[in-house]
């Protein structure tokens, strides 16, 4: 069982959703990103998605684009990302990587899977890789014992929900809305329906369904936690680091934000 799987099982046994936080490695620089991750974990994140910054992030909105752009300007490499994964795993949280596909392919799919496992990572989220194109990744992640998280969307047909859930391990990432990453004033009404439909596809496997995109405060986290196995938050963490006058106050804000979200996932009626 990967750390991710045990974290999700632990949250479930506590009658709550897991809290999953995203941060690009190297934002605002490699060392500081490790400290931000620690603050996220201290505040209550069960799982950390370590972002691999990429030059062409077509699924990200302005906040994460800016954060990942700063990480690239700071010279962040895939090796740095793996170092942040290692540091994340050392906090006790489950460590995932979230990456567009080309940097992993360039690194070497098998080599990346092996190095990821060696760093103590649990799995990888691949937002621009669909199962039909994932043959080498499915083989490599199986060989390395990594979880493999594909995405489903409100536009996914029932047949594609089944295909995607069957190819996933650890959890399946349900994109709450049709759009890019970023905070939203309201949780999309399509999210709950998507989770319901996805549960049909995971009825036999019991694969957890975690929801991301647009979740920006404790109340929204509670709303989503009422029907999802995990609540994924990214832009809100990045925004707090961007807005802070210095790193220390940024860490305080990140810790407080994680705690607010953590209260949300615990408050949810399930």
């Amino acid at each position: 069982m990967t750390t991710l799987q045990s974290k999700l099982a632990e949250a479930r046994s506590q009658g709550r959703a897991a809290l999953i936080g995203y941060l690009p490695a190297g934002f605002p620089d490699v060392e500081s990103s490790v400290r931000v991750v620690q603050a996220m974990v201290d505040g209550g994140c069960d799982v950390i998605e370590v972002g691999l910054p990429y030059s062409d992030p077509t699924m990200d909105g302005p906040t994460i684009q800016r954060a990942a752009g700063m990480a690239l300007e700071a010279g962040t490499t895939p090796k740095d990302v793996l170092a942040v994964v290692r540091a994340t795993a050392a906090t006790g949280a489950a460590a995932l990587v979230m990456s567009y596909w080309n940097p992993i392919e360039r690194y070497g799919v098998e080599a990346f899977a092996a190095d990821m496992a060696d760093a103590g990572g649990s799995g990888v989220i691949t937002p621009d890789l669909i199962p039909e194109e994932a043959g080498p990744w499915i083989a490599a992640s199986d060989a390395a014992g990594l979880d493999r998280i594909f995405l489903v969307a409100p536009s996914s047909t029932d047949a594609r929900l089944k295909l995607t859930c069957d190819a996933s391990r650890g959890f399946v990432y349900a994109a709450s809305l049709m759009g890019v990453t970023g905070t939203r004033a309201k949780v999309s009404g399509t999210a709950e329906r998507l989770v319901e439909r996805t549960r049909e596809a995971t009825r036999d496997s019991g694969l957890p369904v975690c929801v991301g995109l647009g979740i920006s405060n404790g109340a929204q986290a509670a709303e989503v936690a009422a029907y999802a196995d995990g609540v994924i938050v990214g832009a809100g963490f990045c925004q707090r680091v961007l807005d802070a006058p210095d790193l220390e106050s940024g860490l305080d804000a990140v810790r407080a934000f994680a705690a607010e979200l953590g209260e949300g996932v615990r408050a949810a009626a399930r």
Binding site: T58, P127, D128, I130, F150, V152, A153, R160, T164
Partner: peptide, 20 residues
């Protein structure tokens, strides 16, 4: 199938766009 030209082509897109 799937728009592949030998080892090239295909569809490396977010799932959200697959239906479109």
């Amino acid at each position: 199938e799937g728009g592949h030209y030998g080892r090239f082509g295909g569809r490396f897109s977010p799932e959200a766009l697959v239906a479109a």
